[in-house]
Amino acid sequence: MPLLKQNAFVADQWSHLADEDALPDSAAITVSLARLQKEWDTLAKHPGQFGVRLPNTVREAELAPFLPRLALVIVTFPAFNDGRSYSIARQLRLEGYQGEIRAAGNVLPDQLQFMRQVGIDSFDVSDRFPLDSWLKASRQMSLAYQRGLYRPVGEREVWSERHRGFDAWEEQPHAG
């Protein structure tokens, strides 16, 4: 599965550990939420970056104690029409999480823009579609009515544009 990040296919720098895998010395690793909660004391001492794979059936608030140490949260889409992780990603950003959020599972090109707008910035995608299809589908709309979205330069929020002089609801960093 290629990893799409900042408009390019890139190599995944992360090791995704199964629950029984031993911790490597320093690599960037992700673990399941269950392991994160169980082995927090050990994991907190891990010298490399670490992240978590979050099922879409748990409350995002469960991550709160760990958020400051996390550099990656992988949110999941078991089916393309299962939209729970859109809200989970939005909540993470509203809580102030600034690390990477990655979408994994069943992700389609026509959903990429929505995913970026709620704060997801990397995507485990299928190799069925060429890079061009992904990039084209991901920027077909240059306008959004909703405020407080993540957006690249060139995308605008209609209400904020109409009523200049008010800062956007919360100034969001521009995502990839």
Partner: peptide, 13 residues
Amino acid sequence: RQWSSLHPEFSFL
């Protein structure tokens, strides 16, 4: 109408 149009968070309810 405007708020709900292509709402990125609520398009796969």
